[in-house]
């Protein structure tokens, strides 16, 4: 028992879907609940070896971004006073990406259970949709209008104002 509680990993290795390996500090990895769960499980078993966590759904491009986010947030994990700086960083971080990358990043944040990143992505997506017309939303997200004429008519009705 004593040996299992004292065993602790300092780093893990994460493998992307395209088979690239990333060595990640435990504190950084813990930003992802998925990775944290894996680490906790291994620690419970008392393993002292470096563990390999394969992520079948995340490419190395996207994993690099998620880890960049996790690294930044791990730095600030114990420090509430720097919240404003972190918020600013978050905002600048997402602004750099095109919508395809944003999509993959959102899915990866969901898969890796990185809640704050997921929430940040969803807020960003919602903000980019606000005030836009339906057609504009389809354009920026490259989505086809797949409604039947009947549904089309319902949508028109739902999106109409009647002045009385």
């Amino acid at each position: 028992m004593a040996s299992s509680s004292s065993s602790s990993l300092s780093r893990v290795v994460v493998k992307s879907s395209d088979n690239n390996l990333f060595v990640v500090n435990k504190k950084v990895a813990s930003q992802s609940q998925l990775l944290k769960q894996c680490i906790d499980n291994m620690e419970e078993k008392g393993t002292n070896d470096v563990i390999l966590i394969p992520l079948s759904n995340v490419t190395s491009n996207i994993l690099t971004l998620v880890l960049e986010y996790c690294e930044k947030h791990a730095d600030f994990a114990d420090d509430d006073n720097n919240n404003q700086e972190l918020k600013q960083w978050d905002h600048e971080f997402l602004k750099k990406f095109d919508y395809a990358t944003l999509n993959s990043l959102t899915m990866a944040a969901d898969y890796m259970v990185t809640k704050s990143l997921l929430n940040l992505c969803c807020q960003f997506i919602a903000d980019s949709i606000k005030d836009l017309t339906v057609q504009q939303i389809r354009q920026i997200f490259d989505i086809k209008n797949d409604f039947t004429p009947q549904e089309e008519a319902d949508i028109k009705n739902e999106n109409a104002w009647a002045f009385r």
Binding site: A126, D127, I143, N159
Partner: peptide, 19 residues
């Protein structure tokens, strides 16, 4: 989750009119 970030009904209506 995305839809919870809309403050005004017209944004939600536009969102659900996309596909």
């Amino acid at each position: 989750v995305i839809a919870t970030h809309f403050d005004i009904p017209s944004d939600t209506r536009h969102f659900r009119s996309v596909c």
